Simulated assay, not measured.
Amino acid sequence: MEQLCQLNGLAGELGEQHDIELYSADEKCGMQALERTAADLPAAPAHVRRRECNYIRHGTQSLMAALHVASGEVCASIGQTRTESDFVSFIEWVMAELPPQKKAVFVLDQLNTHKSESLVRLMARLNGDEQDLGQKGKSGVLHSMVTRMKYLQGPSLDDVRSQSQRIRFVYTPKHCSWLNVVEGWFSGLQNRLLSLVSCQSVTELADRVLEYVAYYNENWAKKINWRKVKKADIDLLVKKTRKLVTKLTG
């Protein structure tokens, strides 16, 4: 956990001094294209905008996003599914957008599609690794998710500044996907757009999401400023939380 925070704090230095771009990547699946059966009632004095509760479902879309930690900008792709091949194609697309001299580190959670055979083969190809990767489920690097994850992580995080590989991956601890900063961006997308928009098709939903991404990159994207949190800060937060819980529960 501490290493991930340090890595995020180094994002600017890695890009400017070492040609290493840091991305926080994940998927947001099941975005529903909901068409409200009636228009919202506009805001009035002493009343917020009121929303029609009934809707028509038009299907779902899956979003794949990679947040560039140093700049705050987001690369995004939308489709019907979020399969192993979908994720590999997304990573390959992000890498294709980088200049040849640039290297990349992707922070991911431990979803099985993030430790797949296809991703291992993509990494080997981009890094020029010609070793025998073995056979999935039987031998070598491809033997299991454990061996694949070890290969995808590459060297220790302590050596990230001297990374020679074109691409590598860093994983959040199990049950700690919230440490991935793109999750905060997903929250903003949900609150600012998905909870409010009314769409008549999945195509319209996809267009609206991509419009949001473009607007965000142009107007709101900014470098995430990281600072080291002291134990005293954590103790104070725990104390305030306990006090609030006691007050709410009586």
Rank of each mutant, 00 (worst) to 15 (best):
L142G: 06
V74N: 01
R168F: 10
P45F: 10
L237H: 11
Q80A: 15
I56F: 13
S156C: 09
D26C: 00
L22Q: 14
G30C: 13
K150W: 05
G154H: 03
H175L: 04
A43F: 03
N127Y: 12
V94Q: 10
E204S: 14
A39V: 08
E84D: 10
A25G: 01
K230T: 03
S139M: 12
A43T: 08
A96T: 06
A206V: 05
C29K: 12
C75P: 00
Y212N: 05
K222G: 11
N191S: 07
V48Y: 07
F186H: 06
R82E: 04
K102A: 11
R36V: 03
R161E: 14
L236I: 03
Q153A: 14
P45W: 06
A33R: 06
R208K: 07
L14F: 10
E35P: 05
L189I: 10
V213Q: 14
G188Y: 07
I224R: 03
A70K: 07
E117R: 15
R192H: 06
P45C: 09
T113E: 08
L63Y: 02
G137M: 07
R166M: 08
E183T: 09
E92W: 06
L142W: 12
N8D: 09
Q110N: 15
R57M: 00
R168G: 11
E27C: 00
Y171I: 12
H143M: 13
V182H: 02
H175E: 03
V160D: 04
L98D: 00
M123V: 15
D129P: 05
A66M: 07
Q3S: 14
E84K: 02
Y212C: 04
A43K: 09
C5Y: 11
D235E: 11
T113K: 02
D158H: 14
F106N: 06
V181G: 00
I56D: 09
A214N: 13
S162L: 08
R192S: 09
K230N: 08
R208T: 01
V74S: 00
S62H: 13
T246L: 14
S89Q: 12
I234K: 14
K115T: 14
S198C: 06
M31G: 03
L205N: 02
K240A: 02
V107T: 11
H114Y: 11
L189N: 02
Q163V: 06
